[in-house]
Computed example of a mutant assay.
Amino acid sequence: MLSRIGNSLFWMGRYLERSEHIARYTRVQYVASVDSPLAHNQENVLESILHMTANWEGYFQTQQQLEANAVINYTAISEDNSFSILSYIDRVRENARGARDSISIELWEAINSFYHKINAYAAAGLHAEEIEYFARRIEENSYVMKGYIDNTLLRNDVWQLIYLGMHLERAIQIILILQTKFKDREKMLSGPDYAAYENFIWTSTLLSVESFDMYMRCQKTAPDKHHVLNFLLFDTAFPKSVAFSLNTVKQCINEISFQEEKKQGFIHFEAGKLACNFQYTTVKDIEENPVEFLNTTLESIYALAHLLDAKYLKYN
């Protein structure tokens, strides 16, 4: 396979996963703020959205203050923001078009239809209160496209590269969400409403990763730092956990036709090492300094993505 096509498939999967997580996080944070503890005011919510979506600096280059409609529009549908959901959907379509001969017509039509639906929002604008409807459409269409990926593609390098991109990005997004929620939590560590806020922040974290229901079934306890970290980082049976995603990344890399030795510095070795680190790490090992563990893990995932890009997917 040409590296150009492989690059398009890989990034199509990444941008699809990224747009879904950003849409869900924005929706959950903004909507849940209505019922949150008083200390979790709208300004904190808007700051959290901008930090998680990497839009903080860009937003304040065009705006003087935090304002709900402005933040939601900039995050969701701004054509001038390369980190907006709309921009990521545009890239999903562009990458799918770059690999048009490798994917099914059903998948292409679903992506193309999704692209035109979402772009219709850009002309009309988006009020903050409409983020619930807008984000739900992003999430639903993302699952439609994933259904076509699973049910219309051969299990060859095409499918493996898309899945590799999706699960690599999923691990990244879950870690970014956890990092952001720890920042949110730090603001309230000494506040009078801390006890109520602690439960709220971990509940909203689970909702942002679409994990609350399965968490309650598996952990059978109110959300807290210990149990949420254990579930979202280390539960190998849950498809939204980092451990599950990194194991899938390893499996995809093992299945793709990379011609190389399996030793240090090569993609098979580094992917396996990263997945195994999670296999033999427990939540008790990281509880004293979870933020440092999240930072180190994210750096390792980015390094793996860079290695993959530099060796196999980069083209002139």
Rank of each mutant, 00 (worst) to 15 (best):
R4I: 07
S8R: 13
W11A: 01
L16T: 01
S19Y: 05
E20Y: 00
H21W: 12
Y25F: 13
Y25Q: 09
T26F: 09
Y30P: 03
S33Q: 10
S36K: 04
A39P: 11
N41D: 14
G58E: 11
T62A: 12
N69A: 15
N69L: 15
A70W: 01
I77H: 04
S78E: 06
F83I: 03
I85G: 07
I89L: 13
R97V: 12
R97K: 14
A123P: 12
A124E: 01
I131C: 01
F134E: 03
I138D: 04
S142I: 02
K146Q: 14
V158R: 06
W159I: 03
I162W: 10
M166R: 06
E169Q: 09
L176M: 13
L178C: 08
L178R: 02
K183C: 02
K183Q: 05
A196K: 05
T203I: 07
L207Q: 05
S208P: 00
V209C: 12
S211E: 04
D213C: 05
M216I: 10
A222H: 05
P223R: 00
N230R: 15
N254Y: 12
E261M: 10
Q264A: 11
I267F: 08
K273P: 03
I286N: 06
N289S: 05
E292F: 06
T296G: 13
T297R: 12
E299A: 12
A303F: 13
L307C: 08
L307I: 00
L307K: 14
A310N: 15
Y312V: 02
K314V: 10
